[in-house]
Simulated scan of single mutants.
Amino acid sequence: MAANDNRTVTIAAIARLAGVSVPTVSRVINGRSDVAPQTRERVEELLTRHGYRRRPPSMRASSGLVDLVFNDLDSPWAVEIIRGVEDVAHAAGVGTVVSAIHRRSSSAKQWLDNIRTRSTEGVIFVTSTLEPPQQAELRRLNIPAVIVDPAGVPAQDAPTIGATNWAGSLRATEYLIGLGHRRIGFIAGPPQLMCSRARMDGYRAALEAAGIPIDDRLIQAGNFYHEAGFSGGVRLLGLTEPPTAIFASSDQMALGVYEAVRQRGLRMP
């Protein structure tokens, strides 16, 4: 096979000449690190010599799949997100692949490996941080990505979709103030999440607008899970001057507060 051969050079042909497997050549083409240096050099030399041309991104085979990626799948809210994405994807004739990477680098690496093999049409990250290596790889593969409620400050070129965290928290606190409450407890979410900080800011803004001093003893740390709502509720209700209302910044934590109230022998309207 000559370099000026007009026939299309295939990965299989390069693999045969290099004496390696087709997946090995594919890993070299995709810039994977799990290839021996000598093998990589031999394959790259053959690719150059025989004028191998990678298909442009627009010619990438359509898989009819969209990836939906969570850090965890242990909340009713995640189920609601999945249901919504499934409804829209189904109407568009697109399948959905749901993954949970559990904030572990090994899981994220495995997910990226899977992405390369299934030619997904796009990725939706939920309450996640699109790390630079992930973003670079998705860009190289020409796979668009969107982040729902990003965990941290999102990359400038990554489209994001956010809930009305600040406004919702403001309205919820205003509602409690409108009922006559002045000592309103607040159980926050993880401080590293932007949505948590926005909900805290909305709570504070409503109190300040109503001229109610912010009492830090009424603010409890939480993590959006049931146990944090319960423990935060127990601490708030155990204060010498307990709050007359509690704003839990997630549904699961609100259920935990319900249990704390029940065990205290109090009635919740």
Rank of each mutant, 00 (worst) to 15 (best):
155 A>D: 04
86 E>G: 02
13 A>S: 09
141 L>E: 02
191 P>K: 08
77 W>D: 06
32 R>E: 15
21 S>N: 09
86 E>L: 10
43 V>T: 10
64 G>A: 01
143 I>V: 15
11 I>S: 03
200 M>I: 12
68 L>M: 05
92 A>Y: 11
107 S>K: 12
150 P>D: 04
228 A>H: 11
168 G>D: 00
192 Q>K: 12
14 I>A: 11
48 T>E: 15
137 E>R: 13
133 P>Q: 02
263 Q>V: 04
213 P>L: 07
106 S>D: 15
147 I>Y: 09
250 S>F: 13
27 R>L: 10
162 G>M: 13
224 F>R: 13
194 M>P: 02
244 T>P: 08
83 R>T: 14
244 T>F: 12
226 H>A: 02
172 A>K: 01
165 N>H: 03
179 L>H: 09
88 V>C: 04
56 P>A: 08
78 A>F: 14
30 N>I: 00
119 S>E: 12
217 R>H: 15
116 R>F: 05
215 D>F: 08
226 H>R: 13
128 S>H: 10
2 A>R: 15
89 A>N: 03
141 L>S: 08
227 E>A: 15
207 L>S: 09
215 D>N: 13
91 A>P: 07
193 L>K: 14
16 R>H: 14
145 A>P: 10
70 F>C: 05
118 R>A: 06
26 S>P: 07
96 T>N: 03
28 V>S: 05
63 S>H: 09
218 L>K: 08
261 V>E: 03
18 A>Q: 05
14 I>W: 09
155 A>S: 11
204 R>E: 01
